[in-house]
């Protein structure tokens, strides 16, 4: 993957420095720093309990970190927004417009009591869409894009399979064209063919909309397909950080070597 154009961007979309979060004496996330540029996908890999999700929640403003800052620079110039210093209303608005969060468990990200259409329509309605016909058409369009049949539009997500719920969650998040998406194991519940389609769709969006993403995954194949750059976490620290192919083909840190050798050969 050619990373050269990325280096030409003036300032990062997301600038993270010295991020740390402890739960009691346990440091779930320790001194993590990185920059994310527009249109770039960062993969975060590591084993269970390595602090990946905590990092993601700190980035998205869901958790307040103990140390460090997260700066969001939507326009590529001027000082970025300090995500954790923003008033909550602004942060919520950000999360409904320019950002998105895809949960590991679709039940956390969906409204299980209302239909698929209403789930997809929630973000547009939250920012002022008031035409039922348009909202519904948009929902139907997105349902098709995540490969769910159109006659499921009025069904509740509880009647969906796990994989369909995850696809619905993606549609719900991507419907109003966010610029930055946080994904926590997004392809976990999907069957192989849909996973491939979804990865295609995500890559397509990244290139066409300049969508940036932070993807937490333990699946190195997903990371290789989607991520431009890779960050390897262990015990809350980023032990290795580099271009995806570089990290996977020539791992330096012993833990990364272990990770690569234990998964990729399968």
């Amino acid at each position: 993957m050619n990373a050269a154009p990325l280096m030409e961007a003036e300032r990062p979309l997301l600038a993270v420095s010295g991020l740390g979060k402890a739960f009691g004496a346990r440091r779930a996330c320790d001194d993590v720093s990185f920059d994310l540029y527009a249109g770039e996908v960062l993969g975060v890999v590591g084993e269970s309990g390595s602090g990946k999700t905590t990092l993601l929640r700190c980035l998205s403003g869901d958790l307040t970190p103990d140390t460090g800052t997260v700066l969001y620079g939507p326009n590529g110039n001027g000082p970025g927004l300090d995500v954790h210093a923003l008033p909550e209303g602004r942060r919520r608005l950000l999360m409904r417009t320019e950002w998105g969060y895809v949960h590991q468990n679709p039940r956390d990200g969906l409204r299980m009591g209302v239909s698929a259409g209403a789930n997809i329509g929630e973000r547009p309605m939250a920012v002022g869409a008031r035409h039922y016909g348009h909202i519904r058409a948009q929902a139907a369009d997105w349902l098709a894009r995540v490969e769910i049949e159109n006659d499921r539009l009025d069904d509740r997500p509880v009647t969906f399979s796990g994989g369909m719920q995850q696809r619905l969650q993606l549609a719900r998040v991507l419907v109003n064209g966010p610029r930055l998406v946080f994904m926590d194991e997004p392809t976990g519940g999907l069957d192989v063919s849909v996973q491939a389609r979804l990865l295609d769709l995500l890559r397509d969006l990244v290139t066409r909309l300049g969508l940036a993403a932070v993807i937490v995954t333990h699946d190195l194949a997903v990371a290789r397909l989607l991520a431009h750059r890779l960050m390897v976490m262990k015990d809350g620290r980023a032990v290795e950080h580099g271009l995806t192919d570089q990290v996977l083909d020539d791992p330096h840190h012993p833990y990364t070597q272990l990770l690569v050798s234990s998964v990729l050969q399968a």
Binding site: R111, V114, A118, M125, A126, V127, Y132, R136
Partner: peptide
């Protein structure tokens, strides 16, 4: 925060 998007989700659901 005047975060009232869900009210229309309920109305949308009624219509659907």
């Amino acid at each position: 925060l005047a975060d009232y998007g869900v009210m229309h989700v309920k109305l949308y659901e009624d219509i659907s």
